[in-house]
């Protein structure tokens, strides 16, 4: 089933360290049920690699569904368990609407851009 789901999915994941403890994970495409498991696994992997501040760059995410939100929550939980944090940078209008409707913006805090997400206290 996983193979069926992932086949033809529309998502690129790019990981760029931003210092010793911080990493920027840039997602491009639709963050939906087709890619949620892969994204969650990639976020857990950067936590396992020792990064403590994970900034998910959402600027090129065209659409987020509930499974995509679940993957971000999974990543946030992994980061918090390791004593770190996960922050969102530049969510588009649809992602922002999803975060506000679900009130998940309280835990998945959105920042206007990657720099501010990295520098926030």
């Amino acid at each position: 089933m996983r193979d069926d789901f992932a086949k033809g999915a529309d998502m690129e994941i790019t990981v760029n360290p931003a210092g010793q403890q911080a990493v920027v994970v840039k997602l491009s495409g639709r963050l939906d049920l087709l890619v949620a498991a892969d994204v969650k696994q990639r976020l857990a992997q950067v936590v396992n690699e020792g990064f403590r501040l994970i900034v998910v760059d959402m600027s090129e995410v065209s659409f987020v569904d509930s499974s995509g939100l679940g993957a971000l929550i999974g990543g946030l939980k992994a980061a918090r368990l390791a004593g770190g944090d996960l922050r969102l940078a530049s969510p588009g209008p649809q992602a922002q609407a999803m975060l506000e409707l679900t009130t998940l913006h309280r835990v998945l805090k959105p920042y206007p851009n990657v720099t501010e997400a990295l520098q926030a206290g």
Binding site: K40, D65, S66, S67, L69, G70, A71, I73, G74, K77, M98, L101, T102, T103, L104, R106, V107
Partner: peptide, 15 residues
């Protein structure tokens, strides 16, 4: 009903 913030699934139809 929307689940707890830390749940990773179960939001679709509530949304």
């Amino acid at each position: 009903m929307l689940p707890d913030d830390w749940e990773e699934s179960g939001r679709g139809l509530a949304i």
